[in-house]
Every structure is written in structure tokens, then in C-alpha cells.
Amino acid sequence: MTRSPATPLPSPKERRRLREAHALTRARLAERVGVRPGRVRAWESGRRTPRGRKREAYAQLLAGLARAPRDDGAWLTPAEAFDALYSFCAPALLRQTYLLSGRRDRARESVERAFQLAWDRWPEVARDPDPAGWVRAAAHECALSPWHRFRRRYRQPEPPPPRQDDRTLLDALLRLPPPYRRTLLLYDGVGLGLPETAAETEATTRAAAGRLMHARDTVAARLPELSDPRELHQRLAELASTGRLRAAEPPAVRRGSERRARFWTRSAIAFTAALIGTTALTLHTSPTRYEPPVPPGETVQGVPPRMAPGPLSEDQRKLRAKLRKQLPGGPERLLPQAR
């Protein structure tokens, strides 16, 4: 969706490192897909192409990712196909999620989380007609999640862009409701058609058109020079390029996904074991036969109430005093004396 300056191909040392990490360089990706390296560079920079050529390039890319053989004649492994998809989509997704969230750290986290989900469900993603759209939808949902407001690391504001125009445009975008912001980004930034934008935002075409017009009017009210959609697209690309975002390496994303999957698997096993132990303890300590409950007490009729003892007489007081004066033990206490 954004335009960035063309970057040269990686150095031979970097290409060797990528090959060892089972990643694909731009030249190898172009060879797999069957296009020129310049076309891959245009994809990575988000340069707009006619819709027919773009769809054709997409079809070639997806066919190359899923079914293209390697140089030695073997088929691409899942890791190699995932690395190719990551190399193709991650730079543009970082810029898109930055425009959606306004934070660089949340953009990186959203993209990594989306690709971790894709690696967890790779058989499903690999068979999807549009794997790039699958990952893009997951990244956008993660970037716009309302739960981020409760995290302490996101309560501190991030340094704004250096230019005043970029700060005004980013502030206008962040003031839009999330569905309107996402619709504007998909249509004017990514270049999707209105039906595709409506389908990805889970809205009708009429609702998506209304959101798009409202978002354009809101941005144009703050920046009148952006009333032209082409100028708006150019400014969105320039704003996204100021983030200076760098994606993580594909093997690191795959390892993070696998660590998360192992953690949740072990947590589920521990919870199941604790539940089984609690159930076994309950069965062991619970009674094995029926014990009827104790009936409540009933009032007995005809019995006189218990009376408290009255005051002592003179003889009783003398006897009590005499007993207290005697030794606590001895025959005087045990053997009565006859008078």
C-alpha cells in the first residue's frame, strides 16, 4: 500500500544466510513465481498496478508459493513457502498496521502475531485462495483490538512523526472509528475494490461506501489538499514510510509460533491432569452409601422446664465453708465421721 524507495538485492553473504535459514531472496522469489525481480520489488514497495495485472501477479505468486518446485526439482517445504509469503507481505503489513494503530511496537507485534497464527494453521492458509488477504485480515484485527488499551506498555504516547503535515494526517486517521479507518486504508491505501473492502471489513458494499466517504470527508476537513484520492494515497504512503519499521526474520516468527503452541499444549495437559486428579480425589473421599440427614429437633410436651437452683440456706453455707477448710485429700475427705 505504501511507496518506498527501491532497495538493492541482498549481498552474497546475506543471500547465503537467507538460504541457510530456508528463506527466499527477491531474485529466488521472482524465479519461483515466474516474474521479473522488478515486479517483486514493486510488490514489496506497494506500488499501484492495474487491477487486472495485479490479480494476475497475485495468482502467479500464490501458485508459485504453493506448487512451484525448487531448483533441485523437489517441491517447496512448508517452511520455505511460509518464508516466501512472509517476505512478500510483512513489509507492507507493517506499514498498514502502523497507519491503523499509530504505534510502531504494536504494528510489529500485530504482524508477528498474524503470521504466527498463519503458521499454526498453515495447511488451511496454504489452501486459501488468497493467503496474503488471510494474513492481512488477521494483522488488521490484531492492530485494532480494543484490549490493547488495558496494557501498560501502550498507555504512554509514542513520539509523533517529525513533519507537521504527517502529524496532522496521523491524528486525523486515529480520530476515525476503527471500521472507517480500516475501510479508508484498504480502499485508498492498499488499492482493493469496494466489494473486496466490504468483504474484508465484514460489511455490505453500501455500508463500506458510506464509511469511505465519511472518512475521506473527515480527513479532507483537516487537510483540504487531500480531497483528491490519488494525493491521499501518496500521502498515506509517505506517512507509513516515516515509521522506519523493520520486520523480524521468518525463522524467528516460526519459532515464536511453535513456542506459543507448545506452551498452550502443555497448559491444556496440566489443566486436564489437575481436573482428573480433583475428580479422583472427590470420588475417593465421597461417601459410598446413603446417609439420611438428621431430622430437626422437636419440642417434647408435658416435661416441666428446668429451674435454676435457689439461694443456699444457713446450714448449706456452713457446710460449704467447712468443706473448703478441709485438706483436698485424706481420710477426712474420703471417710465420713459419725456424729
Rank of each mutant, 00 (worst) to 15 (best):
K325R: 15
K318Y: 02
R320L: 15
Q316K: 11
L319T: 14
K325S: 11
G302Q: 07
R324T: 07
S313R: 04
A308F: 02
V300T: 14
E298W: 04
V300R: 13
Q326Y: 01
R317M: 13
A308S: 05
R306N: 03
V303A: 09
A308K: 03
G297M: 05
R306V: 09
R320Y: 03
A321F: 05
V303G: 02
R324Q: 11
A321G: 11
R324C: 01
G297E: 07
R306P: 06
L319F: 03
Q301R: 14
P309S: 09
S313F: 00
L312D: 02
G302P: 01
D315P: 01
P305D: 08
G310M: 07
K318Q: 14
T299N: 05
P304S: 11
G302A: 12
P304E: 13
P305R: 05
Q326A: 15
A308L: 11
G297A: 14
R306E: 06
G297S: 10
L323M: 10
R320P: 00
P309Q: 08
A321L: 15
Q326I: 04
E314A: 15
K325V: 01
A308N: 01
Q301V: 14
G297N: 02
P305E: 08
A308W: 02
R324S: 04
E298Y: 02
G302I: 05
P309M: 09
R306D: 05
